[in-house]
Amino acid sequence: MNRFVVISGCSGGGKSTLLAELFARGFSVVEEPGRRIVRQEQEGEGLALPWVDLAAFARKAIAMAIADRKAAADNAGWTFFDRGLVDAAAALEWATGETTVCRLAASYPYHPTVFMTPPWPEIYAGDDERRHGMDEAVAEYERLAALYPALGYEVVPLPKVSVGERADFVLDRLQG
């Protein structure tokens, strides 16, 4: 069984916090490609930032997501990804109309269950790496919530509960 689990969904919905909890419980986790790319680009004079050149950003995110998946190949047990290849390819499709999502998704599959953080305005916060507003975050969530099932994944929305309860929910769902 594929043990690569994607946590996707709304920006600011608690994905990174959930991954930190899963890591604290001893699981392998992979940080969101987008945040790593933004940090790298901001350290230099890079222009592959989502608010400058979304297509260049998405292409870098695709390459990083593929590399992340390959790097995790030898991990034992569950590996949790904060977003992944489908999210990156969806961003490229949104920016350019290029339809790479289906081909990439088939080439690099994840566990058939994808957990989605729903929009949660009460915890949403922008920062230097997340400059878009809640409206853009919700629109992205809606695109992903439609795309994952179209690619054959089962989408499971995460409840709006404490991070510990969310981690328990994910683990219980994967065990059952």
Rank of each mutant, 00 (worst) to 15 (best):
V155H: 10
D82V: 10
I7Q: 12
C102P: 11
A125I: 08
P112N: 11
P121K: 13
V101N: 12
A95Q: 09
E98T: 06
M116W: 13
R39D: 01
F80K: 08
P118D: 11
L158F: 07
H111W: 13
G152F: 03
R59C: 03
G126T: 13
F81E: 10
G133Q: 02
G13C: 04
Y110Q: 12
P112W: 13
A167G: 12
T96S: 12
V163I: 14
A90W: 05
P157T: 08
P112Q: 14
A145G: 01
R35Y: 00
V5R: 05
F57W: 12
V114M: 15
L104F: 04
L171Y: 02
I62S: 01
A146T: 12
F27V: 00
L151I: 09
V30P: 12
P109L: 08
V161A: 15
V161Y: 04
T17R: 05
S162K: 00
E140C: 01
L158T: 10
K160F: 05
N2F: 02
M116N: 14
A58R: 03
L104G: 03
R131A: 10
D127V: 07
A88V: 09
G26N: 04
E45I: 08
L19A: 11
K60T: 01
S28K: 12
W78R: 08
V155F: 04
D68I: 07
G133D: 13
A95D: 07
R69W: 04
A55D: 07
D127G: 04
